[in-house]
Simulated assay, not measured.
Amino acid sequence: MSLALALFEPDIAQNAGTLARTSACLGIGLHIIEPAGFPVGDAGFRRAGMDYLDRAVIHRHASFAAFESWRAGENRRLVLCTTRAAIAYTGFDFSESDVLLLGRESAGVPESVHERADARVVIPLAAGTRSLNVAVAGAMILGEALRQTGGFPG
């Protein structure tokens, strides 16, 4: 079992496509929890994913409940990447069975999803700044999780 990346109702096709490309290049699965704010596979998604989309392993879940059913069956820990966490991602002990969940660009995740998370991590930011682009944040946290678990390909 390897790390997985999940996007909660993504708003922006280009960010989702970038994370699909990242997942393909790093050999991990990408889970898209719908509804998305764009048709999965639209031009922006394909453009950002470029020729790597054919290599990406993308799992689509019709709802958060469907995703949670899958996760329970796989016995995976849910690690929410959020600005509302107290633990820096560099100080968290990742496991190779973790699913890293990123929220919507416009609104994050609802409180009900926060409550379902087994852990929450944050990227510490400079004073006066609010957040990073979701694709950048996802890549940073995924990189640390792969470093800790020895999950980089090759």
Rank of each mutant, 00 (worst) to 15 (best):
R71W: 08
T22S: 07
A43P: 10
H31E: 00
V79T: 10
S23Y: 02
S95T: 13
V40P: 05
T82I: 09
G29A: 15
R21S: 02
V40Q: 04
F64C: 04
V40S: 05
G44M: 10
R21N: 04
A88M: 12
I33L: 00
G29W: 00
F92T: 07
F45E: 01
I87V: 15
G37A: 12
L30P: 03
S97A: 15
I33K: 00
A65G: 10
L100H: 01
L80V: 12
E34Y: 07
L26V: 01
G49R: 03
F64S: 03
A86K: 12
L102E: 03
Y52E: 00
E34H: 02
F67W: 12
E96M: 10
V40N: 02
L100M: 06
C25V: 11
R84W: 08
L26K: 00
E34R: 10
A65D: 15
G103K: 07
R60N: 10
F67S: 03
Y89L: 02
H61C: 03
S69C: 09
A88C: 11
I33S: 03
N75R: 13
D93F: 06
G29V: 02
V57E: 14
R84Y: 11
S63A: 08
F67A: 05
A88Y: 09
E34Q: 14
I28N: 00
A43Q: 12
V79L: 07
H61V: 05
A66T: 12
A13F: 02
E74R: 15
